[in-house]
Design a protein around this nucleic acid. Structure first.
Length: 356
DNA sequence: AAGGCGGGGCT
DNA sequence: AGCCCAGCCTT
């Protein structure tokens, strides 16, 4: 076997391939669920919950049957709960449209809720043999260093350069799925943020290593500055139940979640040139109530803090005698079940500490 | 193209 | 205790 990058990769991967339990018994359904689970999640953190999930929902029909509350419950603690909602929606769609067979064609996969370029590419390459780069952060680290790709990660120029750089790997005998998985595992175990170049089987192929510039790749786009905001929650209690509303309006965070009526002021940002914008939930919290509560809240320490992307949020909870039309009344136990966001979970834990 | 979504690892 | 991570979605 002549010495080449792909031969080094294939030889290394042959010894690594079965390192993970989820690679032993494979089908398109299991691969799809596994990839969704392990997105934005370290393998060590997600694999136990993944195992339980696959036992509870062993195939696409079981997942479609749900109910979605069970899917969410089995996903509790993983974060990014739209992944669970989308998986359930997708399962229903796959049962109906594809007779309960998870597609293995990229063009079909990428149209399914919750499946984007990466997941479609990895499933299509493993189970359909499609020669298509599944570009995740691991692939980005490996390829950008091997070929000193200078474009900022995440942009279109980076994607094009990465696809061009990886193309020769797919024109070999190495199965397309193995190419994608080997690159990924390389990024996870060797070509990490702090790369282990002395353990790397291909350091002599690496342009960044040759230049001593491993730390310069992948280049990151400039980060938006962090912003401090106040989030006022108006809590109305009746007996042992609290009024919550589905956030289906214009409130900027936690779309679709059940929430206490909330009010926040977003500061002016570079992208939104308009002056500070006021948003509220439900549609019409009386302005007088907001003013009164806000004036009181300004002088109180935050009940808790929470960060969502670049917003550093100080949440202040205020009891109010005024109930709003609509919504529903739930006990704390029910709230713990039905509110998935960690921000709301923090608020729920504070309820018995609040005073009227 | 920009920005929400969140728990965990790292410093 | 605070910063960083990064697919998929919506806007």
């Amino acid at each position: 076997m002549p010495d080449s990058l792909v031969n080094r990769l294939a030889t290394w991967y042959a010894g690594e391939k079965h390192r993970y339990e989820f690679r032993l018994e494979r089908n398109p359904y299991r691969t799809w669920i596994t990839e969704i689970f392990l997105q934005q999640t370290q393998i060590a953190a997600g694999k136990d919950k993944l195992k339980t999930f696959l036992k509870r929902f062993p195939d696409v029909k079981a997942l479609a049957k749900g109910p979605v509350e069970d899917v969410l419950a089995a996903f509790q603690g993983m974060g990014y709960y739209s992944r669970a909602r989308n998986m359930h929606r997708a399962a229903v769609e796959i049962v109906k449209k594809y007779k309960a067979n998870v597609p293995v064609v990229y063009a079909d996969l990428v149209k399914i809720p919750g499946i984007g370029h990466y997941t479609a590419a990895i499933v299509a390459s493993i189970h359909g043999g499609e020669k298509i780069l599944a570009l995740d952060a691991n692939h980005a680290r490996v390829l950008s260093r091997l070929y000193t790709i200078g474009a900022a990660q995440g942009g279109q120029a980076f994607r094009e350069a990465a696809v061009r750089a990886a193309a020769p790997l797919f024109e070999t005998k190495m199965p397309a799925g193995d190419v994608n998985e080997a690159l990924m595992q390389w990024g996870q175990t060797i070509c990490k943020k702090k790369p282990l170049c002395d353990k790397c089987f291909a350091a002599d192929f690496c342009a960044a290593f040759a230049a001593g510039r491993q730390a310069d790749f992948p280049r990151k786009a400039e980060r938006a500055e962090a912003l401090e905001i106040l989030w006022l929650m108006l809590v109305h209690r009746k007996g042992n139940k609290y009024q919550v509303f589905a956030n289906t309006g214009k409130f900027p965070f936690l779309a679709g979640e059940l929430m206490f009526p909330s009010y926040t002021v977003l500061p002016e940002t570079r992208s939104k040139k308009a002056a500070a914008e006021t948003l509220m939930l439900p549609e019409k919290i009386p302005a007088a109530l907001i003013r009164k509560s806000l004036a009181k809240a300004q002088n109180l320490p935050a009940d808790f803090r929470h960060t969502i992307t670049r917003y550093k949020i100080a949440v202040k909870m205020m009891f109010t005698d005024t109930s709003q039309p609509g919504g529903k009344f739930l006990t704390p136990a029910e709230l713990k079940d039905k509110c998935h966001s960690s921000l709301m979970q923090k608020a729920i834990r504070r309820l018995d500490k609040l005073e009227f």
